[in-house]
Design a protein around this nucleic acid. Structure first.
Lengths: 194, 194
DNA sequence: CGCGGGTTTGATGATGCTCAAGCCCGGTGG
DNA sequence: CCACCGGGCTTGAGCATCATCAAACCCGCG
């Protein structure tokens, strides 16, 4: 299982990790399996892990007073998962993270991460690059939410992450895009016949 | 002028910079004045600076085909300004950044920044913390755009950055919040009399 | 005084939401 | 093997929120 993570990091850094570094990763990241519908993180808890998905798919969401799920993030294999803010600051997370398929993850606990991993320059560097990329991505989502129509947002996602449409049921994608499942359904029906 | 920046960094890092570090900052950050309506960055250019605002206020926006401005960011003194993605990757920016009041900024050029500043651990550390905070903030904006009504978004902003309402005309704030100036005006009228 | 930027107010309309019903399809149990 | 069930998807009708367009207003400034 750790091979996937090591390959990922080698690729991200554009170099090959030493045996020592590999062993460090193996000692810190514990494998865990989750079945579909199992929670990785529940609203109100502090997020005590940084997770790397080896297999499967997850959703991150809030639930409003009327019980409606609001998907804020979707994650598949080779993505990092967790609530970074809660993890770093130790404050309770407002989000739920749940497996949408059976999942295998590698989890690094808070203490291991802060005491061991974040002392490693190579990990730190990678995390910083990822955080930066993530923030670029988020700015675009804010801008998209303000300027694009439901249909345009759908097309953008379809172009950027076509695999999502194989992996997640439509009502989940709709919520991630900030629209209802009915609206997404109508968009798909319409855009086929034009 | 550099005092402001040095004080800001001392405060961010929770320590006092050495004379040497201070001199480094003074040599790298060049002061510049902009008058109201002047551009700091124009759509299509590569962003060649990282800027720290000493005095004044700026807006960051795109313009759609019909000519409407879409405000994506607002900045006042003691904030960093620029298009980080364009700056880091060297790709043309889709954004305009413009002074909304007369502005004094400290600018670090791309070369200085990448060759000199980013070699300094203290700067790097600070930047990473800032990027991280920024991404926390952006996630909330995405979530807000998807889940909150225009009125709720207004109240949130009013609570979080009351000073914006003194500094920016209403139509700019409206666009930043993803609504029209008319809608914002009506919200303000209504929320007073309830 | 008159001009111009910013704000307000009103009337109308589009986009996308809600609620409700029906459909499709794969899985389970009789 | 078929009937039934349930989750997800679709379709339709009515409606709310917010955008658009147009006009008037306010006020500081030349």
């Amino acid at each position: 299982m750790h091979d996937t993570l090591i390959a990922y990091i080698n690729n991200a850094l554009g170099k090959t990790l030493s045996e020592k570094d590999e062993h460090l990763l193996e000692s810190v990241f514990k494998p865990k399996k989750l079945r579909k519908h199992q929670y990785m993180l529940q609203e109100g808890e502090v997020c005590r892990f940084a997770g790397f998905i080896v297999r499967g798919a997850c959703k991150q969401y809030t639930v409003d007073k009327s019980g409606k799920e609001n998907i804020i993030g979707l994650f598949i294999e080779h993505w990092w998962v967790g609530d970074r803010e809660s993890f770093m600051t130790g404050t309770p997370s407002p989000y739920n993270i749940e497996a949408v398929e059976d999942v295998e993850v590698l989890l690094a606990g808070r203490e291991d991460f802060l005491n061991t991993l974040s002392r490693q320059p190579f990990i730190n560097e990678m995390m910083n690059v990822l955080t930066e990329k993530h923030s670029f991505h988020l700015i675009k989502r804010v801008h998209a939410a303000h300027t694009l129509t439901a249909e345009e947002r759908y097309h953008d996602l379809h172009k950027k992450y076509p695999e999502f449409f194989q992996r997640f049921p439509q009502h989940i994608i709709a919520s991630y895009l900030g629209m209802t499942k009915e609206t997404l359904s109508r968009i798909r029906a319409g855009s086929g016949k034009k």
